[in-house]
Design a protein around this nucleic acid. Structure first.
Lengths: 344, 344
DNA sequence: CTGAAAGCGCTTACAG
DNA sequence: CTGAAAGCGCTTACAG
């Protein structure tokens, strides 16, 4: 620009610079990097030294332009603030690592526009595949990208005719929670959570209903809450405390640990004993379950395992694009027993 | 491979395909995408239609190979399970969005090897800059990448002669916490946290010491814990409960909310009242602070703001590589008052 | 307003 | 074992 532009552009060295310094061709430099066994020992050492001295870093853009492949996978995550998804990401990374693939993350933050932008970014970047933990909304952008040949696997969301998915059996989770309380002798159960427009919450409730139907004399009432946070839980606890003791359930299935934690807190303050008066089961098995004044029995979703499985399905799909049969894998949640539902 | 490979390779369309279909040259297709004003209306429409019909997606690798630029920034994060860093990422993304830049995340998971791998991955991918929230360990890989011309800004870590950083004043945070307790009339303070090899913990302690030194008759004891988790907190609470009441502090500065939450839990179980017997201040202002049986007064770090600032410094560094003066920006933490330190 | 051509930094047959 | 050459999919001066 300026007339006295003496400042040399700090040029990042490229393969040609390495080749020149080592006194070989670029093909040989490339071979040292990609098929070192083809190169004579002394040549290889010379090239390696030149790379070292120059601080050469290979340009992946150029590399993958030629090979048509990338060793990177993208993961679009609906809500990183939820540690369940961080567990998922860890599982994915562990599986990918074993295949020498790298993982890049994007947080869509429960925003459909962002989710779509990140899917497109990954597609343009030519990652070799995408993992998508979507929000509860239409997936047409993902579908279009898939139609163009980008392998996409759904995580925490079912697949369809043209894609795979890995989910946890939410219905079973609700069933296990209610069944556990019934086994403990509880008969007047309540299921709390909401809004029921969230499919996971609705399915958990369905499971609880099924368990109760199997036991004569048992009943289930439904309490729809506005949210499944600790605040929602405190409102729930206050609501139960305001009832006459005979009108209260003796077992509570809560759609989240946060909700359970808030409810327990409010009930303890009101003099209701947990588990003696009301036994409680939470959902998610996260820190709320451990750190509540009364440790909470909880349904755990296998996040890490789910991530590993989703990653291996994606790898499979990336390899044999031809004869791959799409499927949805459903994992089983497990119940972790703690004080909040101890035998009364 | 097989002899009857009749299955046509599902070819992703490239610019040449679009050009052919639209009856123009690839240069014109490129112009439609990059400088649409140079192209006649009718031609542009024809090209756009061809793009649409073919489902053409631009190859970023090829693009950035030519331009030498990328519109992507990478963020290497030490621990995504800590919501503070998720807040940070949100701030970064917001700032980047305004400049039309995209953000890719990588979780180093408190693992130095991973941190280094991701820095190198981003460098090879030719992102235009990197944000690094590092672990408490040597940064030579980052330094080397910077020396090769990759702009890197430290987040939650100070800069040095050749790099910028954005940090929170940890010393001030410790000072504010202790000062608050002193103002509430507490005189026998304790600072709990650890290990002190973590510089943030050590600095918070230094701040608490300074506040206590300003008040005649006030004392501060230090309790080094093995970790700053809720479990560490319960051990801490048990330890305090085991002492004779006269030997206990009347104010506790805790290096994290998790630690404070665990300690409060254990103390309540032991019949120690919070805040009457011991007032408590936590650190981080995360969910533990809100959701504890006794809501916890806490020192908040401005994660979102920090992310925005770090991103704008990086953008600045990416633009004028020449006359950029490296600096470290220090943000002030704030105290959020809750029941755990209410006036006794 | 449009196109032919060069070139970004690599990898990969193919000769030698 | 090594190198010359073609080409991956784009963008950008430069002619016309």
């Amino acid at each position: 620009m300026s007339s006295v532009a003496t400042q040399p552009d700090r040029m990042r060295p490229v393969m040609a610079d390495v080749a020149q310094r080592a006194g070989v061709s670029v093909a040989t430099v490339s071979n040292v990097l990609n098929r070192p066994h083809l190169v004579a020992d002394l040549t290889r050492e010379r090239v390696l030294r030149a790379i070292e001295e120059l601080g050469f870093v290979r340009n992946r853009a150029a590399r993958s332009l030629v090979t048509g492949r990338a060793d990177t996978v993208g993961f679009v995550i609906v809500d990183l603030a939820n540690t369940f998804f961080v567990d998922l990401a860890r599982g994915v990374e562990e599986q990918l690592d074993q295949q020498g693939m790298r993982l890049l993350l994007a947080n869509s933050d429960v925003d459909l526009a962002k989710q779509n932008e990140y899917i497109e970014l990954f597609e343009e970047t030519k990652v070799s595949g995408v993992l998508l933990a979507p929000l509860d909304a239409p997936l047409d952008v993902a579908r279009a990208a898939r139609a163009r040949g980008l392998p996409i696997v759904h995580v925490n969301w079912p697949g369809d005719d043209e894609s795979c998915g890995v989910v946890v059996d939410e219905e079973l989770g609700g069933y296990l929670a209610a069944q556990h309380l019934l086994e403990r002798g509880r008969r007047r159960l309540a299921f709390a959570g909401g809004p029921f427009s969230l499919s996971a919450v609705a399915q958990r409730r369905t499971g609880a209903t099924r368990a109760v139907a199997e036991v004569p004399g048992a009943s289930l009432e439904t309490i729809e809450t506005r949210r499944i946070t600790t605040r929602g839980g405190r409102e729930l606890g206050d609501l139960l405390a305001a009832r006459a003791p005979s009108e209260r359930p003796d077992g509570l299935v809560s759609a989240s640990d946060a909700l359970a934690s808030g409810a327990i807190h409010a009930m303890l303050l009101a003099g209701i004993r947990v588990p003696e008066d009301i036994a409680v089961v939470g959902y998610d098995n996260n820190h709320y379950a451990h750190d509540s004044p009364v440790p909470i029995t909880s349904v755990a979703q296998p996040g890490h395992e789910m991530g590993m499985i989703a990653a291996s399905i994606l790898l499979e799909e990336m390899q044999d694009a031809g004869d791959h049969a799409h499927r949805t894998l459903t994992l089983r949640p497990t119940l972790h027993e703690r004080a909040s539902s101890a035998a009364g």
